[in-house]
Computed example of a mutant assay.
Amino acid sequence: MVKARKQFQFLVSSYGFKEVNSSEFELNYAKTTIKVRVEGINWGLNSRVAFGTTTDTFEDYDLFDIIPYYGCFKIKLKPNIGQQEQLPILASLVDAYARPVLREDISSFVFAKAQQEKRAKQFRALI
Rank of each mutant, 00 (worst) to 15 (best):
D60V: 02
E19I: 15
S92F: 07
W43K: 13
D62Y: 03
V94Q: 01
D105C: 04
T33E: 06
K3H: 15
F64H: 08
K31C: 06
S14M: 00
F73M: 09
K18N: 10
F10W: 08
K113P: 00
F10T: 06
L102M: 08
K18A: 13
V20G: 12
L63E: 09
F51N: 02
D62K: 02
I34T: 09
S107H: 07
I81K: 04
A114T: 06
V101T: 08
G71K: 07
F51T: 02
I106D: 06
Y69W: 00
I89N: 11
F10R: 03
P88Q: 09
A114G: 03
R48N: 07
A98I: 08
S14Q: 05
L27I: 12
K74N: 09
Q116F: 08
Q122R: 15
I89Y: 10
T54R: 04
I34G: 00
D60I: 02
S92C: 13
K6I: 13
T33I: 08
Q116D: 11
R48L: 06
P88T: 13
E59N: 05
F17Q: 07
K121C: 05
R48W: 00
Y15V: 12
D60S: 11
K6Q: 14
I66S: 05
F111C: 00
L87P: 01
F73S: 10
K78A: 14
L63Y: 03
D60N: 09
Q9F: 14
F64Q: 05
G52Q: 01
F10P: 06
L87F: 11
E85Q: 11
S107V: 11
V20Y: 12
Y70F: 10
F8S: 14
V12I: 14
Y15P: 06
G16N: 00
I66D: 01
V36M: 08
Q86H: 07
